[in-house]
Design a protein around this nucleic acid. Structure first.
Length: 563
RNA sequence: UACCCGGUGGUGUAAUUGGCAACACAGAAGGUUUUGGUCCUUCUAUUCCAGGUUCGAGUCCUGGCCGGGUAGCCA
């Protein structure tokens, strides 16, 4: 293991960066960027890109810019700019002074466009959007040249200036690059560089009514910022020739674009469009709903930044599409939470237990370990008394063979407290078990028997008189199918939404040490899972979100027996 | 039926760049345990196919097959 760890393997992008540093291609500089469009919330797929770009910069002693690619005012909002910054910071990355906006470069971009026009490499086109599409040809057929392709430089300059001045309505003209209408790569068939959009921009206001297209803008943004490695996702592979063409024609600083495969995860969707749909149609309660694969949602759910970073590390980087098993994410989560989360006892579905031979009114404080994985976390005192709550599912009146927990006449351990034996089961008129009576062995205080006898199970519990009430929200996958996109004709991804993805439990009982738990703080509820204090939680109304269950071999055993 | 990219266990990735196919997750079995957690041990492959080069091919070459991307005045 230590051997495998020491030989840190490089993904193909880090190999390129390593080679470039060795050859001095960029004078040893490493400058990357994370360039989101502020038109939605970041999700775990973005985290992969963020960790890649910021991670490479950190590992190679370079820097990573946070740059908002805000070239389309009709879709972008300030709210998203803020959430994105918060998310990147929360994930643990720091862009230092290097916060940029594509819109800050609109003027130099415009000047470069003028330069291209003067060089005869760009022209103003009066075709409508529909006509442009028809002239472009198809995947198998070449396009036709626009009738406006051969305007004079003077006419183009004049028209382009008047486009900027606002003389023409939306959609009436575009500025296009003059490349090759027969090019097999459709992106090279005289792509649009500017469109007219009389729309207010969240940063530049009404200063502009022409806005640059992605292909024109992005390379220039990279060039201005002296990016060395412009890392993007696979769908931009076909755009690289155009990225290169613009920069070559202009003769400016020219970064290298490198593409990698975006992340897919089982049981979830990963496109901004679909996530927006879930929010807008009310399938979830906002972008930060704990069921969402958004960074905000995962934060609220209780994921730690370290767990997400580790996940992004272990999934690797590649050039082919793949779908990562959700369980790998949960593994990274548990691995981190196990080391860092204080243990606490909480009962989700309480069952009252009375210890008949325990003195009325007596309270003992039991020494409980806060985190067996972290000695420095110390211990705490948990109050124990005659009336307790245990978990309903920890008792069975007629237990199957492999059930080790409480049953009539069986002795089990109450964690950090005593061995108890169930002596009586009390039911209501409908036959539901509503209360248990037990006896305890005073000699087993702390949980060990002096005579060395063993018990098969240890149960968590809370003292009824000391317990705090809480609401606990249990979450499951948002979709019932590993691949939500795999649907019948006429259906869409919402067809497999899981109707039981949220189960809210009230009347849960938690130990009193949780009284002042901070919002977003994380705990392990012993034997149950990891839980996080919801931001809406207060001392009057405590709310916990279940982040993830503990691995549960008993649950697996039950499934086997049922099937 | 155009162009570009890609195919390694159930899943995600490695393979010192032509030299014993390795790691993790998942699954199965067992051990330890005051969490049925953690931890520890063990078990699972025609490297898409067919040729070729070579002492030797996951890696190089040729041909096929399969998958993904691309016809926004989105990014």
């Amino acid at each position: 293991m230590s051997n495998g760890e020491s030989v840190e393997r490089l993904d193909f992008i880090r190999q390129i960066v390593t080679e470039d540093c060795a050859s001095g291609k960029w004078d040893g500089r490493v400058v990357t960027r994370f360039p989101p469009e502020p038109n939605g919330y970041l999700h775990i797929g973005h985290a992969k890109s963020i960790c890649l770009n910021f991670g490479i910069a950190a590992e190679f002693g370079g820097r990573c810019h946070l740059r908002f690619d805000d070239t389309n005012p009709t879709k972008e909002e300030e709210e998203y700019v803020e959430s994105i910054q918060n998310n990147v910071r929360w994930l643990g990355w720091d862009w230092g002074e290097h916060l940029y906006f594509g819109s800050d470069y609109f003027e130099p971009m415009y000047q470069w466009a003028v330069q291209l026009i003067k060089a005869g490499k760009a022209y103003v086109c009066d075709l409508t959007a529909e006509q442009t599409r028809q002239y472009r040809g198809t995947l198998t057929q070449p396009g036709r040249e626009s009738p406006y392709r051969h305007r004079t430089v003077e006419e183009n300059l004049d028209l382009f200036e008047r486009m900027r001045a606002g003389e023409f309505p939306d959609g009436s003209r575009t500025l296009r690059a003059k490349i090759d209408m027969a090019h097999p790569n459709l992106n090279m068939r005289d792509p649009v560089m500017y469109r007219i959009l009389h729309a207010s921009h969240h940063r530049t206001g009404d200063a502009w009514c022409i806005y640059p297209m992605y292909d024109w803008a992005h390379g220039l943004e990279d060039s201005i910022e002296s990016i060395t490695h412009s890392i993007c996702t696979l769908e931009f592979e076909n755009h690289r020739p155009l990225y290169d063409w613009f920069l070559d024609q202009l003769g400016v600083y020219h970064p290298q674009q490198i593409e990698f495969a975006r992340l897919n995860l089982t049981y979830t969707v990963m496109s901004k469009r679909k996530l927006l749909r879930l929010v807008q149609d009310g399938h979830v309660n906002g972008w930060d709903d704990p069921r969402m694969p958004t960074i905000s949602g995962m934060r609220r759910r209780g994921y730690s930044p370290a767990a997400i970073r580790e996940f992004c590390r272990v999934i690797g980087v590649n050039k082919f599409n793949s779908t990562v098993d959700f369980q790998l994410l949960e593994h990274c989560l548990r691995q981190d939470l196990n080391k860092t989360s204080p243990r606490v006892m909480a009962v989700l579905r309480p069952l009252k237990v009375v210890i008949d031979n325990y003195p009325d009114g007596q309270v003992e404080y039991m020494n409980a370990i806060n985190n067996p994985e972290e000695e420095s976390a110390g211990t705490r005192q948990a109050p124990f008394s005659k009336v307790l709550y245990i978990e309903q599912e920890d008792f069975m009146e007629d237990p199957p063979k492999k059930f080790f927990r409480m049953a009539p006449g069986r002795e089990v351990r109450l964690r950090y407290a005593y061995f108890v034996t169930c002596t009586e089961v009390i039911k209501d008129a409908d036959g539901n078990i509503i209360e248990l009576h037990c006896t305890y062995d005073p000699a087993t205080r702390g949980g060990d028997a002096p005579d060395g006898r063993k018990v098969k199970a240890t149960l968590h519990w809370v003292s009824a008189a000391h317990a705090l009430d809480a609401e606990v929200r249990l979450y499951d996958h948002l979709f019932t199918q590993a691949n939500p996109e795999d649907v019948e004709e006429g259906q869409d991804f919402t067809a497999h939404l899981n109707p039981n993805s949220l189960e809210a439990l009230t009347g849960c009982k938690v130990e009193p040490s949780l009284r002042d738990a901070e919002p977003l703080s994380r705990y392990q509820f012993e034997r149950l899972g990891y839980f996080c204090v919801d931001p809406d939680s207060s001392s009057r109304r405590m709310i916990f979100n279940r982040t993830v269950t503990l691995r549960d071999t008993w649950a697996k055993e039950q499934q086997k027996q049922n099937s």
